[in-house]
Simulated assay, not measured.
Amino acid sequence: MSPPPFIDRESGELDLRQIRAEVFPLAGLIVLFGGLALLMFLITLLVAGNSLLGGLLTVVTQFILAVGTGIVLMYVIARGIQLADG
């Protein structure tokens, strides 16, 4: 039986190197989609206001957040399966 992920085989403590290696790609995805949504939100506030265009840009912002959340979740699940397989 293989040791659980993120545990150092020799010491039995948390493997911070492996944790960092997994955190950076995940944080990158979150920052990417959060930044895109924030950019669209700021454009909505500055340009569109309460017009029809503002409503459309709000929907686009929500769509970016929904797609980003789905991609982040798929990444986490796929990476968890890879780590579980060893």
Rank of each mutant, 00 (worst) to 15 (best):
M1I: 09
M1S: 03
P3S: 09
P4A: 05
P4S: 07
P4T: 01
P4Y: 04
P5Y: 02
P5M: 04
R9D: 01
R9W: 00
R9A: 07
E10M: 08
S11K: 14
S11W: 07
G12N: 03
E13D: 10
L14Q: 06
L14K: 15
L14H: 07
D15P: 04
R17M: 12
Q18L: 08
Q18I: 11
I19M: 12
I19L: 09
I19P: 01
I19Y: 03
I19F: 02
R20E: 15
A21P: 15
V23K: 11
F24P: 01
F24R: 11
P25S: 08
L26M: 07
L29D: 01
I30H: 06
I30F: 01
I30C: 02
V31A: 15
L32W: 05
L32D: 08
G35A: 12
G35P: 11
L36S: 11
A37M: 13
A37G: 15
L38K: 07
L39Y: 11
M40D: 05
L42H: 00
L42Y: 06
I43W: 11
I43Q: 00
I43C: 02
I43M: 02
I43T: 04
T44A: 02
L45D: 15
L45I: 03
L45P: 04
L46M: 11
L46P: 05
L46D: 08
V47W: 05
A48Y: 05
A48Q: 05
G49Q: 02
G49E: 11
N50K: 15
S51D: 09
S51K: 15
L52G: 12
L52M: 10
L52E: 10
L53A: 07
G55L: 03
L56Y: 03
L56F: 08
L57R: 06
T58L: 13
T58N: 13
T58S: 14
V59W: 08
V59F: 07
V60I: 12
V60L: 11
V60E: 03
T61S: 14
T61H: 04
Q62W: 13
F63D: 04
F63K: 10
F63H: 08
I64G: 05
L65W: 13
L65I: 14
L65F: 12
L65E: 02
A66T: 09
V67I: 13
V67T: 14
V67D: 12
T69P: 02
T69D: 03
G70H: 05
G70R: 01
I71Y: 06
I71F: 06
V72I: 15
L73Y: 03
L73M: 14
L73C: 01
M74L: 12
Y75R: 10
I77M: 11
R79T: 04
I81P: 03
I81C: 00
I81L: 08
Q82V: 08
A84E: 12
A84H: 08
D85K: 04
D85R: 01
D85Q: 00
G86D: 05
G86L: 06
G86P: 02
